[in-house]
Each structure stands twice: as C-alpha cells, then as structure tokens.
Nucleic acid binder design. Structure first.
Length: 560
RNA sequence: GCGCCCGUAGCUCAAUUGGAUAGAGCGGCUGGCUUCGAACCAGCAGGCUGGGUGUUCGAUUCACCCCGGGCGCGCCA
C-alpha cells in the first residue's frame, strides 16, 4: 500500500468538505512532505495554509482544525486506520500524521522481497533518452576536470534507467577542426625534431609529453617519409594523433567504470550529408542570411542575444553548424529526450543551441542542458591550475591510479552539479576518518561481519515472513526503519532534479542511523526471535547501501 | 558593460524547490571498547544565511538594487 498516495486522496476529499464549510472556491494541489523533525510526525501537509492563501482567508487555524477532524473521521473504521497512529495540527497550520509501526514493518518486508526494486517507478514507459557527456576534445588525455562530468553523467544515466528510460550514453568526438590541426602541427613539430627537419613548434601547440610519444611512434614507422607539412600530412598526423589519444581516453573511462554506448565522430558525421541537410532546412525556413561573406543564423528570433555565423567567409563551418545537425540527428534517431552535460565554459553556448532546437520545431523540454561546475583539484592545501595546451594538468589516469575508481567517484558525486567542488587528492587518498567514504563502507562492512558471524552460529535461518518484526520497537530501530522508508522519495528527487548527490547524502544518513543502532543494540543475542528480526532489518540496510551505490556506479567492499 | 553559477558555523557543503527551532562532516572541547569491527557512538561550543528593499500567514529559497568571487561573452572549439 502506498501511504502517501492513499493519504493524498483522503485529504483531497476533506479539502472539498472544507471548501463547502468555508465557501472557498479554489482547491490547492495536495502536497505531502516529510517534516524536518520527528516531533512533527512522519508526514505533513500544508493544505490548510494553501487553502487559506489562495482563497485569501485569515482563518488558518479554523481551517486546519476542521481538516484535521474530517481526516480523523474519514480514516476511522477503514483498514487504513491501522497505519495511522495520530493526526494533529501544529502552528502555523500544518497537519501532521504519525504512522503506526506497521507502516515500517511492511516496508522492510517489501525490501526483503523485492530488493531495491521496491523503490522503482516506471515513469518513462520505455521512452528513449540520449545522454551526451564528457565529449572532451581528443587532443590530450582526460583530466580530472572531465572526470566529474564522466562520473555524474554515468550516474544520471543509471538513475534514468532505474525509472524506466531507455538510455544511450554518447560521446561526441570533436575530431576535426582547428584544434585538431594544431594537434597535427604539434605532433609534426616533434616528429621534425626526430627527423632533423626544421619546423617551428606552433605557438599555441600542445606541449604534453604524449605528443612526443605519438611523434616517436610515427617516426619509428615512417622514418623520413614526411619532409614537409602540407594538407596530406595535416590529415595524417591529425587522425593518427586522435586515434592514439582516443584509445587512451577509452581506457581511462573504462577503468573508472564509465562505459559509453556510442562515440559519434564529427569527422565521420560530416561526411553523411546531414549537416548540409540541416542547413537547407534552416534556409528553407528563411532563417539564414548573408552578411560580409558569411552565412548567419537568425538565432535572435529564438531567444539568443546575437545571430550566429554558420558558414565562415572562408567556406568552412563554425563549431555550432555540425552540432546543430548532430542534435537534429539525435531526434531523428528516435530519442524523446536529449540531455547534454557540459562544463561551465559552455554555458554561453546554451542559448544558441536552444535557439537552433526551437528553429527546428522541437519543444524546449525535449532538451536539457546540465552544467557541471569544475572541480578544483587540490594537493593538500594547494590548488592545481590546469591547461591542456601548456601540459599543466592532473590526468584522470593519475587519480584512478592514486585514489582508486570507487573513492574518486564518491568524491565527484558529493556536490550539487552547480556547485564548485574541491577535490583534494591527498584527502581522498588518506585512510583517515576525515574521509567520508569509509563511513559508508564501514557500515556495510559491519553488517557483512554480523551476517557472516550469524550464519556461522546458525542463527540467521528464519525466513522474513515468519519473523516477528514487531519486536523492532526501540528508538534506534524505528529511526533506522524510517530512514529506509525515505529511500524511494530520495531516488525520485534525484531523478527529478538530475542530481545524484542526493543519493550520497542519503547514504551518509542511513549509515549514521545504522551506526547509532549498532552501538546501542546487539543483533546476535540469545533471543532467537529478536535476532531474526534484527537480521532482517540490517539486511534491508545492506540492500539499500549496496544497491544505491551501485546506482551511482560505486562498488563497496564486504571487508575493509 | 552583458549573461550564467555562487556567497550559509573557523573550513567543505546541505536545507525536501516558499515551510516549522537553518542542519551535516571536518577541525576544537567532554565522555564511551572485557561483549556482533572504536575507520564507531553520545554530548558541548560555534550563525544578523554577504548587505538592503519588497512580495506573504511564512524567505536561505522568489523579485529588484548594491558588495564580493568564479566562468563565459569569436567568422575558436
């Protein structure tokens, strides 16, 4: 039984009665939320306040009292009454509900039976969403800056899947254009050094050692083949470099546990004719005009602050031109929802992408752009500045090797997407209590320890249905049960806001109430019935801990 | 100058999208292991939520104006 749903039906009925009683004409939406303190009960509605507000009535208290009486009447005598212990009004005019413990016992049985899918809702009904993220230029190794986007994007994808979406994780590979030419020239310059050819290193070239490595590789195969740097060499060195770098990127992503379903190469995409097609569509709609030898898109007609060049006067495309076609192609591939995850340096790009999407006749809510703020990386107390061109960066590889994938993921997921994140590598590496990862892991490990011991002692055999859960009535047990009950709501909030950090915060809270329970009560005792009940309880905690982490892409050890 | 994000305890961040006495972790201070793992628990101290005005039963949240920080504003990608 879904208490929240049932209750909101009943409240709706009572609100109608209140409307008659006080001659209110408008009814509010019914909102049920969890009160901030346990003194205020387990669930709360502001229906009375809303009712008075929209009907401009000062009778706050009267309305609340009336609603409260009617609610009690409506519930009394029904089977529902076994689940509600108390209904009371608190100032200014909240109506609060306190549950009977039966609510929580049912919940634990549910977790035991269905595992984590007890929290599942099929919101999407199999609709398709494409999540595009990372999409870092293949001009150098992935840095920790990309790592946050990778980890969050993957977690968001998992959450969407959990709620019934068919998800495709996609990496848009920007493998042509200016920066690839610069890469090609940089590699060629290093090659030239080996081959004894004079060629000046480009001014804004990529200075990292990986460029030298690639050059060396090419030199070993083709010692003196490339005497000059013409179009042919530009293409060869560029694509060679991209393929080597991409291989490393893929490996890094794999090692941190982020798997893409698809890489779309701009280089290949440009050869499908789709860019020209989308240009033609815009042109046919009269949204493109000529000025100073370039072709401009009237993006201001769709909310952008200035029009944008699509075709430069030299005949080449700007960055957005293929990107518009690419986004259009996503729709044509059958996706109902497009999610782009970008770094903060791209936020200025949102209005023009949005404009293009509108120009193509798509609804605003079919495209979501999530901006993930940068992670500032610290080594101890010192921030590390990063630049790919100047070869000053910490790579994702270093972080995986130093800190390990699970712990790094944990840190990248601890903050709201829009918040800056301080990632202290030294802290992440320490095994000190300052490291919050261990708090959750420790709770999990403790549970595993108990379960192992109980099975050694042969005390865990009672099946959940036969266990007398009513024995779980101590404060610490009830608290634990309540937090378990919050889980579906937390997941749903993470889904609606696309903010995975909510799940992590929840896990910290769950771990906290577990630790409190643990220090006060023993699970394994001589009382077989109580032992059985408590084992069911901690099993439920274990299920949520490991499955929620799994949803975030983090694994958790049984021992530490 | 314009746009976006941010400003909350000494530090790093929350606050159920307008709710109740603004909460956690770290750091500081007090206590707690003979018993399933003390990487833990219980408690104390710490706040004019950057400042101001407004909207209303109610503002950390919304609107407007200042102050301070980050990022972006190209026929780069």
């Amino acid at each position: 039984m879904d208490i929240t749903k049932e209750l909101s039906h009943i409240i709706q009925g009572c609100v109608k009665q209140a409307q008659e009683e006080f001659s209110f004409t408008v009814a509010p939406d019914i909102v049920l939320e969890r009160p901030p303190k346990t003194d205020f009960g387990d669930l709360s509605t502001n229906a009375a306040m809303q009712l008075c507000k929209i009907n401009q009535s000062p009778k706050l208290k009267e309305t609340a009292d009336f609603l409260c009486r009617r609610l009690k009447d409506s519930i009394a005598g029904t089977q529902f009454s076994g689940y509600i212990k108390e209904i009371f009004v608190m100032p200014p005019a909240f109506i609060n509900f306190r549950f009977a413990n039966k609510v929580f016992y049912d919940l634990v049985l549910n977790i035991e039976k269905e595992k984590v899918s007890f929290a599942k809702r099929n919101f999407a009904q199999g609709k398709k969403v494409i999540v595009e993220f990372v999409s870092a230029n293949p001009t150098g190794p992935l840095t920790v800056a990309h790592a946050r986007q990778a980890v969050v994007g993957d977690a968001i994808s998992n959450i969407l899947e959990f709620f019934g979406w068919k998800v495709v994780r996609e990496y848009y590979l920007n493998d042509e254009g200016n920066q690839i030419n610069v890469l090609a020239a940089s590699i060629y310059a290093r090659y030239a050094e080996l081959a004894g050819v004079t060629f000046e290193f480009p001014q804004d070239g990529y200075k990292g050692d990986y460029v030298k490595d690639i050059a060396k590789e090419i030199f070993n195969e083709h010692k003196n083949k490339f005497k000059v740097f013409s179009e042919k060499e530009k293409e060869f060195f560029g694509q060679y470099g991209v393929s080597v770098i991409l291989k490393d990127i893929e490996k890094d992503l794999k090692d941190i546990g982020v798997a893409f379903d698809n890489y779309t190469s701009q280089h290949k995409f440009a050869r499908t004719g789709k860019i020209e097609k989308s240009l033609k569509t815009l042109k046919d709609k009269g949204l493109i005009y000529e000025k100073e030898g370039a072709a401009w898109f009237k993006s201001t007609e769709f909310g952008d602050d200035k029009d944008r060049v699509l075709i430069k006067s030299d005949g080449t495309y700007t960055y957005i031109t293929p990107d518009i076609a690419y986004h259009r192609d996503k729709y044509e591939r059958g996706f109902d929802w497009l999610i782009d995850i970008w770094g903060p340096d791209h936020h200025g790009y949102i209005p023009r992408m949005r404009a293009a999407q509108r120009a193509l006749g798509k609804k605003d809510d079919s495209l979501s752009v999530i901006i993930i703020q940068l992670a500032t990386i610290y080594r101890g107390s010192k921030p590390v500045r990063m630049s790919t061109r100047n070869a000053e960066y910490i790579t994702l590889r270093e972080v995986i090797d130093e800190v390990g994938p699970d712990v790094s993921k944990f840190f990248f997921l601890t903050r709201k997407n829009s918040s800056h994140l301080d990632f202290d590598i030294e802290l992440a590496k320490t095994e000190s209590p300052e490291n919050p990862v261990y708090y959750i892991q420790y709770a999990h490990a403790r549970i595993c320890g108990i379960l192992k011991r109980s099975s050694e002692l042969n005390k865990s055999c009672a099946a959940a249905e036969k266990v007398n859960l009513e024995l779980l009535n101590k404060n610490e047990e009830i608290n634990l049960l309540k937090v378990l009950g919050d889980y579906p709501r937390v997941l749903q909030a993470a889904y609606e806001t696309l903010e995975p950090y909510r799940i992590l915060e929840y896990l910290l809270e769950l771990s906290k109430v577990f630790h409190s329970f643990y220090t006060v009560h023993k699970v394994i005792t001589d009382d077989a019935e109580l032992t059985g009940a408590r084992i069911v309880l901690i099993n439920a905690v274990k299920t949520i801990l490991s499955d929620a982490l799994n949803l975030l892409g983090i694994s958790i050890p049984e021992k530490m």
